[in-house]
Computed example of a mutant assay.
Amino acid sequence: MSMLQEFKEFAIKGNVVDLAVGVIIGGAFGKIVDSVVGDLIMPLVGAVVGKLDFSNLFLVLGSVPPGTGTTLDALKKAGVPVFAYGSFITVAVNFAILAFIIFLMIKQINRLKKEAPAPVAEPAPVVTPEDVLLLREIRDSLKK
């Protein structure tokens, strides 16, 4: 079998197609979560903590050339090394929210997948020697 044929069989397998669809949907879902976090949740968290914008929290690790702005973007454009811990906080919050949303989705899917338990089959009756004797007595009494 040629390598091209093997690749074709691999690429058309359902698992590969499912994975591709999952990656595409995951990317779109990630943008939705980024918007929810950046536009809805982080402003609320910032308001509670003192109107902080976590994405602009940083420490300058090098010398700043004269005339360079003091914003994170300006420092990065100037090539100044910065420790952007605010960006990390934002990404960590994004991850926590995304993980929680996926947890809720999986929990709901599992709940919907649960089927009614199969009815339990009744155990076969156990016939003891005493039962056999009793049945014989009944049979014999009916014959009389």
Rank of each mutant, 00 (worst) to 15 (best):
L75Y: 03
Q5T: 15
K31D: 11
I138S: 05
P43I: 04
D73N: 11
K8A: 14
V132R: 15
S55W: 08
N56Q: 15
F100T: 04
V80K: 00
S63Y: 00
S55K: 14
V33S: 05
S63D: 05
L44M: 10
V33Y: 07
L59F: 14
A84C: 08
P66S: 12
E6S: 11
A92V: 03
L142F: 12
F100Q: 01
L134A: 15
E130V: 06
R136K: 13
R111V: 02
F58Q: 05
L135V: 00
G62N: 01
M42D: 02
A118E: 15
F10R: 10
L104A: 11
R136N: 12
D131G: 06
P119I: 07
D131A: 08
A116C: 02
G62V: 04
L57R: 06
F29P: 04
P129Q: 02
V82F: 06
L135P: 00
N56C: 06
G27Q: 12
F29M: 13
V91P: 00
E122F: 09
V93M: 10
N110W: 13
F88V: 14
P81M: 04
G79F: 02
F88Q: 12
L40P: 01
K8I: 14
P65S: 05
G46Y: 11
V23K: 12
I101W: 03
E115F: 10
I109H: 13
T90C: 09
E9W: 13
G69C: 05
K143S: 04
K114W: 10
G38Y: 03
V36Y: 13
G30D: 06
V82C: 09
I41A: 08
T128H: 08
K51T: 11
F29L: 11
D131L: 08
V16R: 12
